[in-house]
């Protein structure tokens, strides 16, 4: 009983409610495109883009921009578009391109921070870096504007995903057939890229840039263990992702553990459970 009353007490604080809302929305969005990303061999795009966002943040910090969202979002979107919209016939393929951009942005970002921080009020830059990489408690200190921004962007992402669900399926499954029969594959690749970039910038607040890939791929991989159709995999991974994030957030609030790593830990446990379930189901069929 006592644990419930503790939880109830926490939920009377608006910042906990905010964190919960934002956490659930972000994990819902990121899981939707997880399936597509895993299948397009872009599992690591989360990492790549978040490093880009990190680099952009470094630039923002150095130039003294207070609200770095204005730099981070456009830069990340541009990189996502460069990576993804090439589709099948891009020059440098999937993983190599992602690795290139990711490492490059990380190095440049750190370099810029290091060089310029000497002239700056070199306050707690390393703490800042650490929280960008691993996510921070900043999810517990969200301002109302941030919460609203997140809500609006999430609604747009979910709506776009539902509206273009069938197109996304065709383009992911067989791009050249889709193109041959008149689907505007270039346009949809661009759309997918933009949605992903927005999601990643949003999710950096929650789990930090090092752990974003986990949020994107674990729910998709878990549900692919058990389900066979694209639709059921998508629905299941959305549900899983929301559930895991809510649980992870709750645990981290109760036990005071880091938010990002706790959520990912829950995702890993669920993945293990679903792998087992998949094995059992397959065994039953035989």
């Amino acid at each position: 009983m006592s644990i419930f009353s503790t939880i109830a007490q926490y939920f009377s604080y608006p910042y906990v409610v905010n964190a919960m809302v934002v956490g659930v929305l972000i994990s819902l969005c990121s899981s939707l495109l997880g399936v597509t990303l895993v299948l397009k061999r872009f599992s690591f795009i989360g990492d790549g883009l978040s490093h880009v966002a990190f680099g952009a943040m470094a630039v923002a910090a150095v130039t003294g921009l207070t609200d770095n969202m204005y730099i981070v979002l456009p830069v990340t979107v541009i990189c996502a578009v460069l990576l993804l919209s090439g589709g099948q016939d891009s020059v440098i393929k999937g993983d190599a391109a992602v690795a290139m951009i990711s490492v490059g942005a990380l190095a440049i970002g750190y370099l810029i921070m290091n060089v310029f921080s000497r002239n700056l009020r070199s306050s707690n830059l390393s703490a800042d870096v650490c929280s960008t990489l691993f996510g921070s408690t900043s999810i517990l200190t969200l301002s109302n504007t941030e919460v609203w921004l997140c809500v609006i962007l999430s609604v747009v992402v979910v709506a776009a995903f539902i509206f273009f669900y069938n197109k996304i399926f065709s383009v992911t499954f067989d791009e050249s057939f889709a193109k041959a029969t008149g689907t505007k594959t270039g346009l949809y690749n661009l759309l997918i890229a933009i949605i992903i970039a927005v999601i990643i910038v949003l999710a950096m607040n929650l789990v930090g840039s090092l752990l974003i890939s986990a949020l994107v791929i674990f729910p998709a991989l878990s549900s692919m263990r058990v389900f066979k159709s694209f639709k059921s995999v998508t629905i299941c991974s959305a549900a899983l992702s929301v559930g895991c994030s809510a649980l992870g957030l709750l645990i981290s609030i109760l036990l005071g553990t880091p938010v990002g790593s706790t959520i990912v830990a829950v995702d890993i446990v669920v993945f293990a459970l679903f792998s087992l379930l998949g094995l059992i189901l397959r065994g039953v069929k035989k």
Partner: peptide
């Protein structure tokens, strides 16, 4: 890809995708 989760039905009906334009 080897691990694409899609049923026969989903794949066959996706043949209509190109004709539908922006119809979701």
């Amino acid at each position: 890809q080897k691990d694409f989760p899609a049923t026969v039905k989903e794949i066959v009906v996706s043949g209509f995708c190109g004709q539908n334009g922006f119809k979701p």
